[in-house]
């Protein structure tokens, strides 16, 4: 019987303490907008850099902005986290979805609850989210990639390339726009394959396919990679052969492709800065919360986002980051 009584007394004590704690908490938190970024995954350098951008935004605007993410890149876990944010009734949710389709119903729920939703890297969610924020137009990114390839190759020669998979929408957009651009502006360039290779974002697959292609076309002069694994493995293959005359360009990260840029086995790598994308997304949410107009030409206060364009609910920056031997060291992602 002592047990029950002590449990009761203890419980009552807890209740009292708890309400006191709440009172203290409540007093200190003023009216700050709570803007939460739910990234794809915890503990990878890309999203660590994005967190810096979100925190910078919080410091600049005095908003309560922060980033969370699931431990693994599991879409189901990410959906749960967003659901908790809805229950908490934060002011705005920023999301970089692992799987845009599966998070759609949850984001619709958030909108219904009156929460501002901004997505990134998910153009298919435009219309579901208030706005989707993209660093650039995919067509421009692809054209730039092929422009840099053509320049590195001196405007002529045979080239091949690799994408993550033929079903990956963004990669294919880059490839198609780039190919078109190259055909128009550099007629002496020749794409030797009918379709790009696929690496499924896997290093081993990429390396094998690049090696096969280099054997099959010994006179190859250029190679593009729409995936990080593709461009870095192409550079590695070229390094193994000691053939600096084969020019490699493509999507790349300072932490992964830096070493090839440094040694000259990759001509250039391009990407976008996650910190800036996070900052810009948070700023769009902030503007929406304050009721400020979001229209073409507004300045999101980050390099490349000074004059954004807006089409069908997608906010485009012009924030392609071209990495070369000289600047890759400036970035920590």
């Amino acid at each position: 019987m002592i047990t029950r009584r002590s449990v009761l007394v203890g419980g009552a004590g807890m209740l009292a303490l708890g309400s006191m704690g709440r009172a203290a908490f409540g007093a200190e938190s003023g009216k700050k907008y709570e803007i939460v970024m739910c990234a794809k995954q915890e503990g990878i350098s890309w999203f660590d850099d994005m967190r810096k951008g979100v925190e910078q935004f919080a410091a600049d605007f005095g908003a309560n902005a922060y980033q969370i993410a699931p431990e693994s890149g599991d879409p189901a876990k990410q959906a749960q986290m967003v659901e908790s944010l809805i229950a908490k009734h934060v002011d705005a949710i920023l999301v970089v979805p692992n799987d845009p389709q599966s998070i759609k119903p949850i984001l619709e729920k958030a909108r219904k609850a009156g929460i501002i939703v901004i997505s990134h890297e998910a153009q298919s969610l435009a219309g579901v989210s208030n706005y989707d924020v993209e660093a650039f137009k995919n067509e421009d990114f692809g054209a730039l990639m092929f422009e840099n390839l053509a320049k590195a190759m001196g405007g002529e020669g045979k080239y091949a390339g690799i994408v993550g998979a033929l079903t990956m929408e963004t990669h294919m957009q880059w490839f198609k726009a780039g190919l078109e651009y190259a055909k128009k502006n550099y007629p002496k360039l020749e794409f030797v394959l009918s379709e790009p290779l696929e690496d499924n974002n896997d290093e081993k697959t990429a390396l094998d396919k690049v090696n096969e292609t280099l054997k099959k076309y010994p006179d190859l002069k250029g190679f593009f990679g729409c995936s990080v694994s593709g461009s870095s493995m192409a550079a590695l293959a070229v390094e193994k052969l000691r053939r600096k005359d084969i020019k490699v360009v493509g999507l790349g990260l300072p932490s992964i492709n830096g070493v090839y840029l440094e040694e000259g086995y990759q001509a250039e790598a391009q990407c976008w800065r996650p910190a800036d994308a996070g900052y810009a997304a948070a700023y769009v949410a902030y503007k929406a919360l304050k009721g400020e107009p979001i229209e073409a030409g507004i300045d999101l206060k980050r390099p490349g986002y000074e004059k954004v364009t807006i089409e069908n609910g997608v906010v485009y920056g012009n924030a392609t980051l071209v990495l070369t031997k000289d600047n890759y060291g400036d970035y920590g992602f």
């Binding site: 693994s72 599991d74 879409p75 189901a76 959906a79 799987d99 389709q101 599966s102 759609k104 119903p105």
Partner: peptide, 17 residues
Amino acid sequence: VMLARFNSMKVGFGDSF
């Protein structure tokens, strides 16, 4: 249940469970 909650299904959904 997952199919209804996420309105989609894919290999790897819920791996962390």
